[in-house]
Structures are given as structure tokens and as C-alpha cells.
């Protein structure tokens, strides 16, 4: 039997309980076992217990790590094209996000990653929101003077243009930073907003459930060299299982969008959502800043951006 190590950075739980991203990995392991009659055993390593998040991508490219459920933008330092996986206001709804895989942009991204030694096994998209302490952060005008943890270069570029002071803090310090007032607002996925327990501090939540400028691609990826070393039937089983699990991932993400609203309002926070006009304002800023910055990185980046804009 072949053992595949599947790593991720999210909190570990069981197949039925906990972070849906961890559950998805465990479901993947279970499905692979039954599909291959135990020929492939997948070991799940939650919470970066195997290696640091940033090191996972490089390790997969080299064949030192088999698989990872990995946020695309984290790989942006090694493969700049990957930053498109968290481009502000480029993807604004789940329908929009799901259309990527079969669209030209999906094919191009798959191709780019293949060339870098990575196979995209299962597409997972997630939206996120803003937890803020003093005042809500919904429109660009709200951002002025706020200290915000944007979490990625592209988000920060957009937020800075809107007048926010962005700061970089380790994610496990988000809570303390908001508590002491070192930062006023944190932008991250619904699931992480829940696991950071920011509802204990935040007075406002801008939910991404209906629409958002924050959509992140965090697929299950696999090392191409490992993938290529497997027999054809096992390769097929992997890709098939990956595709079959995509609805579970989307469902989990959507449930957390509801959960985060419920948890925040229960804790007494005001839950806001964004209207189309406000989203357009953010998009205009994002185009002039993050998109332009990304498109200028390489010809491939520019092309990916063009193809992504075609998806609607």
C-alpha cells in the first residue's frame, strides 16, 4: 500500500466535527481507502503539524510532501501567478468562483501549476468577512484611519488606497492585537473568524455571505512527481475523489458563512452586508491597485487576469 501525507494548517478534528477543511481532508482519506481497496492510505496532518505553512508548497514541488489543502495566495512568493487565488473583488460570489474550474482561467491555472510541479486535485473556494471593533468596515470610506490586518499583499494594496493603515501580525496574535487595540479590524475567512473567536471583541461583522471582495481559492493540491509515480487507476481515483468532494467543500464554506453571522450576532455584534454599489466601489479601487500590480508581474499573470474577468 502507498501512504500519502496530506497536510494543512487548519485546526484538527474528526471526520464529523470541526473545521470543514480538516473534515474534507479526512473524507478524502476515507474515500481513497475504499476506492482503492486500501491500496492508498492518506494520513492527514492538521494544524501545520508536519511543516510550516509556507514550506508546504515548496516541499510538494520537490516531492517531499505528497498533498496539502493549501491557500493559493500563500504560494504567491514562489509562483506569483498564485496570488490570483485571493484577488480582491475579482471573484464576488460562490457561483462565480465555481465557474472557474471549467472556464479558461481554470484550465490556464491548472496548466501553470502543472509546469511548477503541482496537480490541482480539488477546488475549494471560501469567502470571508471583516470583524471590527470600533466602527463597521463596509465601504471604502469606512477604511480611512482604521488599522487593518488585511492578510495578503493584494488586500493590503486595496485597503491602503482606501486610507487604512495595514499591519502584518501572525494570525495567532490577531485576537490579542484586536484586544489591545493594536489593530481595529481583521479580514479573513468566515471559518477563521470563528476559530479566532473574534466575536468576543468585535462590535461589527461585515459578512461575505451574499457578496464579498474576499474570495480565496484553497484547493487540495498534490505533488506532480508523486502523482506521476502512481499507476493510472490510482491517479484517476485521486482526481475523481477530489472532484466528488468539491460540493462538500463549498457546502462547508457556506455553512460557516451562516455560522459566523449567527455567532457574531449572538455575541451582540452588528452584522452588516455589502450592497452591489459598495462592492463596485471596492472593485474600482482594487482594479487600480491590486489588479494592476498583479497584471504587471508577468505576461502569464496578465493573461490569467484577463481570463478571470471573462468568467461572470
Amino acid at each position: 500500500a502507498t501512504t500519502l501525507k496530506l497536510s494543512h494548517q487548519f485546526p484538527g478534528g474528526t471526520i464529523d466535527q470541526g473545521d470543514f477543511r480538516d473534515r474534507m481532508c479526512r473524507k478524502f482519506a476515507e474515500a481513497m481507502k475504499s476506492k482503492t481497496n486500501g491500496e492508498i492510505e492518506v494520513q492527514v496532518y492538521p494544524g501545520s503539524s508536519l511543516m510550516k505553512t509556507n514550506a508546504q508548497f515548496g516541499a510538494m514541488r520537490k516531492g517531499a510532501l505528497d498533498m496539502s489543502l493549501y491557500p493559493a495566495p500563500y504560494a504567491g512568493g514562489e509562483v506569483p501567478e498564485m496570488n490570483i487565488g485571493l484577488m480582491p473583488a475579482l471573484v464576488t460570489s460562490y457561483e462565480h468562483a465555481i465557474a472557474w474550474k471549467s472556464g479558461e482561467v481554470g484550465r490556464k491555472l491548472t496548466e501553470v501549476l502543472q509546469a511548477k510541479g503541482i496537480v490541482l486535485v480539488s477546488w475549494v473556494w471560501q469567502t470571508g468577512g471583516v470583524a471590527s471593533r470600533g466602527k463597521p468596515l463596509v465601504s471604502p470610506d469606512d477604511a480611512k484611519g482604521m488599522k487593518v490586518r488585511g492578510g495578503s499583499r493584494e488586500m493590503d494594496l486595496m485597503l491602503k488606497q482606501a486610507g487604512a493603515a495595514t499591519l502584518s501580525i501572525p494570525s495567532n496574535e490577531s485576537y490579542a492585537a484586536m484586544q489591545t487595540g493594536a489593530c481595529d479590524a481583521v479580514i479573513t475567512s468566515s471559518t477563521s473568524l470563528i476559530s479566532f473567536r473574534l466575536e468576543e471583541l468585535a462590535k461589527h461583522l461585515t459578512s461575505g455571505r451574499e457578496r464579498s471582495y474576499w474570495f480565496m481559492l484553497e484547493p487540495i493540491m498534490m505533488s506532480k512527481s508523486i502523482f506521476d509515480s502512481l499507476p493510472k487507476d490510482q491517479q484517476d481515483a485521486i482526481m475523481q475523489t477530489g472532484a466528488e468532494l468539491e460540493p462538500f467543500g463549498q457546502q462547508g464554506a457556506k455553512e460557516d458563512d451562516l455560522n459566523v453571522e449567527r455567532i457574531f450576532s449572538k455575541a451582540g455584534a452588528q452584522v452588516e452586508s455589502m450592497d452591489e454599489a459598495t462592492l463596485d466601489k471596492w472593485r474600482d479601487i482594487a482594479k487600480a491597485t491590486a489588479w494592476a500590480d498583479y497584471g504587471a508581474k508577468s505576461e502569464t499573470c496578465a493573461e490569467l487576469l484577463r481570463l478571470a474577468e471573462k468568467v461572470a
Binding site: 515548496g58 516541499a59 520537490k62 517531499a64 510532501l65
Partner: peptide, 16 residues
């Protein structure tokens, strides 16, 4: 461990 692991040692240490 897989041979490729040896190639990731330095990046691992740096990231940590």
C-alpha cells in the same frame, strides 16, 4: 523519508 526531503531542509529551517 523520501529522497526529496533532503532538498527541503534549508527552506524548512528558514520558514520556521
Amino acid at each position: 523519508m523520501p529522497a526529496a526531503s533532503l532538498d527541503t531542509v534549508t527552506q524548512n529551517v528558514y520558514e520556521e
